[in-house]
Write a protein that binds this DNA or RNA. Structure first.
Length: 214
DNA sequence: GTCCAGGGCCTAC
DNA sequence: GTAGGCCATGGA
């Protein structure tokens, strides 16, 4: 079973996901950081809290007190870390690029990735997510769901590294931004509905091609 | 009450 | 380089 076929099945089943229709690049970055290890529903509460207070700007976040930011992010879980992460991200963007994310992201994917990974709170997945959804770089995002799904489908072995998976996707899928954004979103959707830690295969669109339940 | 969600950091081996 | 503990709210 090829990735291309799986993509078609998922797109047909779930429809287009259209993730990250946000008001700004910065909002996308904030969303990506806030959704770490939680649901979008909870992350969105944090975004809403910031919007209500008109704080969804690089400079604003960089300058408000940590305590205030923590309180606004409480519904997102792990709010102390996330507040610190947003502080670090915004202060870096402000000092080095005057808060202009367009300017910051206008460099090669490799350079930007290295730069993002140096910031506390931005690991591999968050960096790749920012690269794809905010900086519009052609990078596939490998998350826990992607690994679990591909493992259960028998496409990768358990323990395959993120970079190996990315190379595999790169080989098998026609490379365009929209497809990468959609596929990642579709994997998450499939994961939430059917491919949880304990499989819930009843009605899964990939049930007929899934080989094992590891 | 229990389990887990669109990770990452830190520490110990 | 990787396995395990930790972070914390909210929904099922």
């Amino acid at each position: 079973m090829h990735i291309k076929k799986i993509y078609k099945i998922l797109l047909n089943y779930f429809g287009e996901q259209g993730w990250w229709h946000a008001d700004s690049i910065f909002e996308i970055c904030v969303g990506i950081i806030l959704v770490q290890r939680t649901t979008w529903r909870n992350a969105a509460k944090g975004i809403e809290n910031l919007k209500k207070r008109r704080l969804l700007k690089v400079k604003k976040i960089a300058e408000i007190s940590l305590k205030e930011l923590e309180d606004l992010l409480r519904p997102t879980g792990f709010y102390r870390q996330k507040a610190e992460y947003l502080k670090i991200f915004t202060q870096y963007a402000l000092e080095k690029y005057g808060g202009d994310l367009e300017k910051w992201f206008n460099k090669s994917a490799e350079e930007l990735r290295k730069e993002l990974l140096r910031l506390k709170g931005i690991g591999e997945e968050t960096a790749d997510s920012i690269l794809l959804y905010a900086a519009k770089k052609l990078v596939f995002v490998v998350d826990a769901y992607t690994k679990r799904i591909l493992t259960r489908l028998g496409i990768i072995k358990k323990g395959t590294s993120c970079s190996e998976i990315k190379k595999m996707i790169w080989r098998e899928l026609p490379v365009d931004l929209k497809t990468y954004k959609e596929l990642r979103a579709l994997f998450v959707e499939l994961g939430k509905r059917f491919c949880k830690a304990t499989p819930q295969c009843d009605g899964c669109p990939l049930e007929s091609v899934c080989q094992k339940h590891i």
